[in-house]
């Protein structure tokens, strides 16, 4: 009866995005994220896995952002600049 769990990449692949060339998310000071942030909650509470730990930094994969806003208010350093994507860009719910 059970099926194989879906990976987050496959889930995001179901969605319709109109991706802007410019990111609507920005780490204000990327250095702080690696050096000062304890816990780095953006790495796991983001439902779209936008934030990923690379060798020496956190990358921001804004293309798959579901626009919930969680990273912005849960960032312990309030270090994430968060805008809405430009009008008509970003995710477009098909069912909602």
């Amino acid at each position: 009866m059970t099926t194989k769990p879906m990976k987050i990449e496959d889930k995001l692949f179901l969605d319709r995005f109109k991706v802007d060339t410019e990111s609507h998310l920005r780490l204000v000071d990327g250095e702080k994220c690696v050096k000062e942030c304890e816990g780095q909650p953006c790495l796991y509470l983001c439902p779209a896995n936008v934030y990923r730990l690379e060798v020496d930094r956190i990358s921001v994969n804004y293309e798959g952002c579901l626009e919930c806003g969680s990273c912005r208010i849960a960032c312990p350093l309030l270090n994430i600049e968060w805008r809405f994507p430009k009008g008509g860009f970003g995710i477009a719910h098909k069912f909602g």
Partner: peptide, 17 residues
């Protein structure tokens, strides 16, 4: 849950507060 959604195909994955 599993028997109720068995064979179903996910169409969309979204998030909100």
């Amino acid at each position: 849950l599993a028997p109720l959604i068995a064979g179903g195909k996910s169409l969309e994955y979204i998030a909100h507060w």
